[in-house]
Nucleic acid binder design. Sequence first.
DNA 1: TAGATTGTTAATCGATTAACAATC
DNA 2: TAGATTGTTAATCGATTAACAATC
Lengths: 205, 205
Amino acid sequence: MNNKKIPEIIIGRLPIYLRALQHTAENGIKTISSQELGELVGISAAQIRKDISQFGEFGKQGTGYSIEFLINKLCEILKVNQTWDVIVVGAGDLGHALAHYQGFKDRGFRVVAIFDNNKNKVGQTIGSFKVEDAAEMSERIRSLGVKIAVMTVPASAAQEVADVLVQAGIRSILNYAPVNVNVPSYVKVQYSDPATNLQKMTYYL
Amino acid sequence: MNNKKIPEIIIGRLPIYLRALQHTAENGIKTISSQELGELVGISAAQIRKDISQFGEFGKQGTGYSIEFLINKLCEILKVNQTWDVIVVGAGDLGHALAHYQGFKDRGFRVVAIFDNNKNKVGQTIGSFKVEDAAEMSERIRSLGVKIAVMTVPASAAQEVADVLVQAGIRSILNYAPVNVNVPSYVKVQYSDPATNLQKMTYYL
DNA sequence: TAGATTGTTAATCGATTAACAATC
DNA sequence: TAGATTGTTAATCGATTAACAATC
């Protein structure tokens, strides 16, 4: 592995590769070429080889990549060869759904708590969780040592909530609220507002 | 407006600008400079001016942009100055949440139906919807004339569902399933798998 | 060995930024 | 008018692709 800074655009493609590889591994296939992986994910073979080669020489000429080996390497690079605790903030429908979400398991994540500031929701049971009071969120984040949060709060609350999260030690935020939030540069935010995602496609209709 | 093809990366930023402008408009502010808008969305002023200028000369030197005028133009460009019907495929927790989602209203979208292939779910009531049988989905898409679908189905079903959607006339797919789907080039897909979104951030932890 | 495919270099392509004349 | 800010050009920066020697 070299030491130069890896562009964010490359890091963003690695989970896509990983997902396709894990899917392929389930079918008992052992090796894959950059060409084949490229067809699965819709990315050129050259780009896949270049992306992967940023982290080491993981392939074999004439053969391609060992799927199991590459999965392990990608998990290691992305730090998902461990399970990260995640909190959900906002116990609306979307918060409920994400707290229940079965797809986090086996991908490196586990929801450990869900918070809301609505006193009527606090104490309600959601699957195996009890909705906790947002007033206690900061303390809970610290004591649990959580670094990752999913925000499903109204736009009007998002910045305030983000400030509390960052202050309490959260370093990655998956934001479903329809608003940009300002956070320090050491905190990463991924935006996933459903309406914005749809609006990216209507231009082409 | 010129006629050359607008890069997809620019189209993808327009909904972000629009969202920030609509938010700003609610506070009664009338004009905004590229500098100010840039601070709201975390994008350079030069880039914002260049993006907007692809579509016309919407600003005024010395003053900036009329917020109301720019909102109208962006809505027109993105074709969200109308309401698009949307179907949801997959009546799991996430499908439920998106069918109920209040954030589509006023952003150009309206969910009109939700489908599932599980006979136990078909007929169940979700808010104002009854879950419909996926077997009838194709016919319903055609008769409703829907062009946009949200997929919240298991990875194993996603390709098959996408094929049916495309065949029935869907041209934009918001895909929450953790898998890439192959569709013709005239169909747009936005990927929004929660676990993949989180995995884009763990590298930095 | 012959065929296949990697890792990497150089070339190309595209996106972002800086700078400033035009002008409100 | 003076100050502010656009729209646009040219320069810079970064990402993608093509090509191929190395080698499994």
